[in-house]
Amino acid sequence: MAKFNLKINGKIHRVDVDPSTPMLWVLRDHLDLQGTKYGCGMALCGACTVHLNGTAMRSCVLPVSAAENQEITTIEGLSPNGDHPVQQAWLEHDVAQCGYCQSGQIMSAVSLLKNNPNPSDEDIEAFMSGNICRCGTYSRIKAAIKTAAKQ
């Protein structure tokens, strides 16, 4: 066990965990931030996507030891009331079906738009291909990203 200072959504948290613990489980089990989802544990599905210094990262394979003193943003920290343009675009297109993967999809989309404010269809497909949706809401996700890009 070791103590880590974590900067999550602008707040400092101190946790005492095994250094190998993935951020996903630190967020969910230790900090009760349940918005970041478990899907595969191997960076294959994107449900656990968070931002590390503004860039999308799969928190299920990010050890807490590698995240210390870095800026971590989770879905809870994206906006206070769901008013981030990407969240708003998600609502406008009524994207969600079951909704489980959508935190991760949104976090990936925000990261994409940050680096590429006007992505083409191919850009969106390439960047988002790491996020699985079993309900098949992909076409709405793409439409929502395009809407958000216009904001």
């Binding site: 349940q34 809870e76 009331n81 969240q87 998600w90 935190s103």
Partner: peptide, 13 residues
């Protein structure tokens, strides 16, 4: 919709 896009704890897990 809003609960989903803001990551509220809605699911079993």
């Amino acid at each position: 919709g809003l609960n989903i896009v803001t990551g509220k704890p809605l699911f079993g897990l």
